[in-house]
Structure formats: C-alpha cells, structure tokens
Write a protein that binds this DNA or RNA. Sequence first.
DNA 1: ATCGTTCCCCTTGTCGGACAAGCAGACGAG
DNA 2: CTCGTCTGCTTGTCCGACAAGGGGAACGAT
Lengths: 239, 239
Amino acid sequence: MAGTNYQPLDRRKVYEQIAGQLLDQIGTRRLKPGDVLPPERELTESFGVGRSSIREALRMLESQGVIAAATGGAFVVAEPANPLNSSLRLLFSLDERAGMHDLYELRRILECEAAFLAAERRADEHLEAMDTAVAEMEAALADGRGGERFIDADLRFHLAISEATGNRLVLHSMQAVRDVVRRALLTVVLIPRSPESAVVEHRAIRAAIADRDADRARQEMRAHLVRVERDVEQGVGSG
Amino acid sequence: MAGTNYQPLDRRKVYEQIAGQLLDQIGTRRLKPGDVLPPERELTESFGVGRSSIREALRMLESQGVIAAATGGAFVVAEPANPLNSSLRLLFSLDERAGMHDLYELRRILECEAAFLAAERRADEHLEAMDTAVAEMEAALADGRGGERFIDADLRFHLAISEATGNRLVLHSMQAVRDVVRRALLTVVLIPRSPESAVVEHRAIRAAIADRDADRARQEMRAHLVRVERDVEQGVGSG
DNA sequence: ATCGTTCCCCTTGTCGGACAAGCAGACGAG
DNA sequence: CTCGTCTGCTTGTCCGACAAGGGGAACGAT
C-alpha cells in the first residue's frame, strides 16, 4: 500500500489559505502589531482572488482577535493578547455544565501556582509593579467612586505576579479567566470592607513573594481568593 | 454630562449581528450540537440580508469552532469543546516569548491540581475510566506499532482525571494544552522504555486517587510529568 | 501663516447575480 | 439487490454596483 505518496491535495478553501498566509506574516513579524493592513482591493490584486474571499479571511482573523477594525474602516494588527479571552467567554457561555464555581476554581489553581512560581523567580522590578498597583488600589479606595479604577489596579497586581513567573501562557490564561470574572468582581467592590481586606491581603502576598517564600505566597494567595469568592457569593446572595 | 443615556446605537455590522443571533440560539440550545444549519440561501431570506453577510457571519463562527463544515458543504453545530484549543495554538504561535517550556509548565499546573481535586471528588466510574485507559495503553504497547493509539489512550487517562474533578473548565483547559503538546508527545512514544514508565506512573496516580490521597496524587502526577518532559527534551535533543 | 470649512476620493459594508464544482438522493439498467 | 448515471441543490468563488462614512486636500477667512 506504500509507494506513491500523494500530495495532501490542497482542498483548503481560498479564504482559509489567505487567512493562513496573513497569519504567517503576523507570526513572523513581517506584520507587526499596530501596522495597518492594505485595503481590501489591494489584497484582492495581490492574491489574485475576489473580494469576497479576502473579506471572509479578514472576518476569520477578526473574530480571532488577530486584527481589529480601526477608524476609517481599515484594519490593524492587534496587540497579541486576547485570543484566549474571547474563547473562554465563549466556552463558558456554551458549556452549560460549567458554573461560576468552576471559574473561581480554575482561577485559584492558576493564581496560586503563579504566586508560587513568582516567589521563586521575581525580580525587583516585579515587586515595584506590585507596589504601584497596591498604591493605586488605595488611591482608588480613598477616591470614593473608584469601582473601575480599583478593579483595574487589582488586575494589574495579579498581572504583575504572573509576569514575574516569566511564563507567558500562564499570564495569558490568567488574563482570560480574569476577563470572564470581571463582571462578578464589580459587585465585590461594593461589599463593605472587602476592598480594604484585598489591600491587606495583597500586601501579604507581596511580602511573601519578596521573601522568596513560595509556599507562603501560594498560601496567602489562596486565602485571598477564598475570601473574595465568599464575599462575591454573599454579595450576589444579598444584593 | 450625565442624564440622557443614549442607546448604544446599533452600529454593529450586519454580519456581527447575525453571528450573535446564531450564537444565542446555540447557547440556549435551540440549536444543539450536531444540528445542521439551514442553507445559506434560507438564512438569507430569514434574516433578509445578502448572502455575503450570512457567509461572513458563518466564517466568524467557523473560525471560533462553534460550527464546522460537514459533508455536502452544510454546516453543523460543533460539539462544545474546541474553542480553547485553537486559541491556545494561535496564542502559542503568535507570542514569540512563549516557549515549549511554558507549555509544559502550564500543563503541570493544571494536571497536578486536577489530580489533587480528582482524588477528593472521584467516583468509582472515574476509576473505571482510568483503568480502561491504562489497559488500552498496555494493549497499544503490546501491539507494537501503536503510536497514535497509545497517545490517545494516554489522553483518555488524563481526561478521566479532569473529568473526576467535576470542573468543566479545567477539563477544557487541559484538553487545549494537551492538544498543543500532542505533536511533541509523538516523539516521546519512540523513546525506549518511556511508554512503559508512563504505564507504571499512571498506575501510581490512579492508586493515589483511588485512596483519596490528594497530596500523593498531585505528587505522583508531578513526578510523571517531570519525567515525560525530560524524556521529550532528550528525544528532541538526540533525535 | 494658521485656522476652520467644504468637498472629493477612497474604503468599507452590503446587496444581487452569475457560474463551476461537489455531494446526495433518485432513478433506471443489469 | 447492486451499480452507474442523472438531476437538483448547496457551497465556493468571482464580479459589479451602490450608499455611507472618514480622511485629507483645497480653499477661503482671519
């Protein structure tokens, strides 16, 4: 049965090939984030295909977050960050057996281990990033109406931790989980004394990471997340 | 500046609205996995829009893995599983700062904690699933030429574990990571004695989970993954 | 010279039509 | 019953067309 091994016989549709080629160019940095793509008609000529195919290819890349619509209708290469975000949200809304609790648990898994690794690998600059994030949280707290601002600072703190792990995939995964949790967190800010607790706990986490005490970092992170989850449940239950 | 809060002014493009509506129908199970979508022309009439818009909407859903092309060109609603897979692969190829090592580390984080949780929550049926998977691995091993088969059985074992956690998101995440790692694992099968070790280690993991010894389960899983990663590195280095 | 306005061109968004290719099921021959 | 063929439907792909909207050039006012 061996012998002549035939070509895989390129049955991929035109728009898929286009999308693939564009993706390659982005992957190899021949198209960098921020670059604007050529107009559709130009691509039409370059590839020698109809506009429909070009558009469908663009739609694929757009829905995957690789490119984004800019003003004036043109497309630009997006910052490499998102792909997981939308997918996780999609998955979460599609799989009815997945509940909020699953989300928190996944978050706990990722963040605890991230804290652990961060404690082992952090550089001083990461500590600084955490400090400014905590300071920003306090500022937002004193500011009063700082719901959004507080949450953003909180996010930056956790992001600084996963940044410190040096693992890009952990970073992206956390971002994705966080992105889905975000709405629920908006309620937790309204719970009395909850944000204050968060600041204290963040300091504890930061201290453990500064001491390079990985086990303590994981433990503090776990305590923090458990409390937040409990507060969210209460907040949802009562509010 | 507050006061009149205007409508978001539906500036969403037609194809986005179509995609959204279809996604809703899938999310609410009015369209179940396996169902075939109506032909494009029919959708054209239903929505009262041009075929291009329909096609672009379909392309978005297709590239997100929500629907898949079936034979005869028709589209069917896909099994809810994939969205993370393609995204992670995409992310991995796009973020040049992410290396294989990051991937293994993420896998280790997920699988170790999954093993931990599985030990606490497993039912007997999960143990059975693991047993059949291990048996299948041995069969594939005895069979000789069982590269694919061995890996599939291996996957089923790990899947059974995350199934036992009861956390759908953990399950999906693991699947996604696993999907990207898959190619690398194909090399590990060729390494002498590596598959045999895997069987032994799987048994140890299974035993710990059966004993509901969560800490031991995590530890065994970690040992297993560390060895596999080392073997892969050697395999790539030497072969 | 700088600023504001106007107008034109280009681009996208969207529609409709057209045709080849592929697949499925019907239909008839053996 | 099995096989080959034929027909009809559907997608894949191209083309042409038009409205809407933005950007920038040209132009006029200060």
